[in-house]
Amino acid sequence: MLVVTALAVVRTRSLFAVVMLSGVFSLLSALLFVTMDAVDVAFTEAAVGAGISTVLLLGTLALTSRYERTARQSPLVPVAVVLVTGAALFYGTLDMPNFGDPAAPASNHVYPDYIARSVDQIDVPNIVTAILASYRGFDTLGEVAVVFTAGVGVLLLISGLRRRRKGGSKAKQEGPRA
């Protein structure tokens, strides 16, 4: 699992076929989610990350240019920024519990409550679904609002395109349907 991830890092540094590699990256991360017991997340990542995102990126490439110009300023400042941020994050992980530790704070606070009560209260076999749709229903409503806003924004930005362009080339897909 860790080897696969490391491989993904090396590959995404490649300059060519960036979009396809991002799809590959999403798919690999979906595999990683499965091994970490998050099957629902893996579904969504494979469908949305590897599917819809790639299609949207390809659509953008079709509407814009396909090649990256290589002229750019010296990479020293970005490297410094990245190294400093990475060091800060690394320092932060020193206090974290070990991977998979049953005594970790995340696994002891409200989590046993959800496991114990969702059978009686919701009666849905999938605990993730029970929490998403019931306990955290308002979050999901907010999420739908975000997606709706984004869809409207995309439509507003794109809608003039067809009018301005003669020959009626295909407009980009409208907002995400997730």
């Binding site: 997340v41 969504t44 990542e45 949305v48 990350g49 819809i52 995102s53 949207l56 990126l57 659509g59 953008t60 999420e143 975000v146 997606v147 806003t149 984004a150 869809g151 924004g153 995309v154 930005l157 794109i158 980009k172 907002g175 995400p176 997730a178």
Partner: peptide, 13 residues
Amino acid sequence: IVVGVATTSLGLA
């Protein structure tokens, strides 16, 4: 994830 796709599509637009 879903919110991420929303932001991605907006950025691409």
